[in-house]
């Protein structure tokens, strides 16, 4: 464990909790893409199948349970509890255009052709594009609530920190995993546009609004 991975995990945790609190406190999931949240729940489900068979550390297990629990709770709140506030008209990104190619790629490019490994690879590839429906929804609505931008910033920052973690681990441990690194680069690059808007607007007290 190094400081970049730890802060990355904490940033990820902050993002997930922030979103949960936003929906719970405002009792509304306006501006939130349910499709992205479903894909994140799928990412955690396919990645943490070894939760009970492969114990690594209390930290690792606790974080996995929290991620799984929060992501399912978020999906539940969007599609059931606060369904009335779900903005389906703007959450129109075709998720199947992501899930199917990602599923195919996981079959073709992986470290080992076993079910658990393919599912893990699927979760890595899916996570790298899972935010697209959310970013697409913001371009459709032309704006985002400030709390939602903080959620997105923390979420984007987490994988950027993981990239540094992988540089660290390559340098000090000689470890590197090309699948995770390439997917992590794609994932972080997708946030660049948002990072620019977040830093130039939100951090200057402005509301994040796109030229409609």
């Amino acid at each position: 464990m190094n400081v970049f991975r730890l802060t990355g995990d904490l940033s990820h945790l902050v993002a997930i909790i922030l979103l949960l609190l936003k929906i719970w406190k405002t009792r509304s999931c306006a501006g939130i893409s349910g499709k992205s949240q479903v894909m994140f729940a799928l990412v955690f489900t396919t990645r943490y199948l070894d939760l009970f068979t492969n114990f690594i550390s209390p930290y690792n297990s606790v974080m996995k349970v929290i991620y799984l629990g929060c992501s399912y709770a978020t999906v539940y709140m969007i599609y059931m509890k606060f369904k009335a506030s779900y903005d389906g008209n703007h959450d129109t990104f075709r998720a199947e255009f992501l899930i199917i190619p990602v599923g195919g790629l996981a079959f073709l490019v992986n470290h080992e052709f076993t079910p658990l490994e393919i599912l893990w690879t699927f979760s890595i590839y899916l996570e790298s594009v899972a935010i697209l429906p959310q970013l697409f929804m913001i371009t459709k609505t032309g704006e985002a609530e400030t709390i939602t931008t903080h959620y997105l910033f923390a979420l984007g920052l987490y994988r950027a920190l993981y990239l540094i973690n992988w540089i660290w681990r390559y340098y000090f441990e000689g470890f590197f995993d090309l699948i995770a690194i390439v997917a992590g680069c794609v994932q972080t690059i997708l946030y660049c546009d948002f990072f620019y808007l977040y830093i130039t607007k939100v951090l200057h007290g402005k509301k994040l609004s796109l030229p409609a």
Binding site: H12, N54, I56, S57, R169, D177, I179
Partner: peptide, 10 residues
Amino acid sequence: KNGPKAKDEL
């Protein structure tokens, strides 16, 4: 097997 990918990451 730890393999190329470390299972210890989230």
